[in-house]
Amino acid sequence: MKKRISIFPEEVLEELSVNYRYMVQELANKQGELNLGQRFSTSDIHRTSDYMTVRLYKPISNIYLSEKDEDLL
């Protein structure tokens, strides 16, 4: 379990939802969604100032997990 902390003092936390008492600290460059350290190009035809080439697919097998309706609760 990741350790939970807060970045807010108690007098502020009293005004907030309880969620902000249990925040998780992580390295920013490990957060893929922030795209830190990513290298972008530009593309006029895509009308974007930050273009990244789509990664290639790795072919895998077809459906692996399935379940029959009659097995359901």
Binding site: V18, Y22, V24, A28, Q31, L34
Partner: peptide
């Protein structure tokens, strides 16, 4: 569990981010 009613984004502070996850 508790979680945001709608959404919470990253609180970025230099080399770290602080986030609200389901608790």
């Amino acid at each position: 569990i508790s979680k945001p009613i709608h959404h919470s984004h990253y609180f970025v502070s230099e080399e770290y981010v602080y986030s609200v996850y389901t608790n």
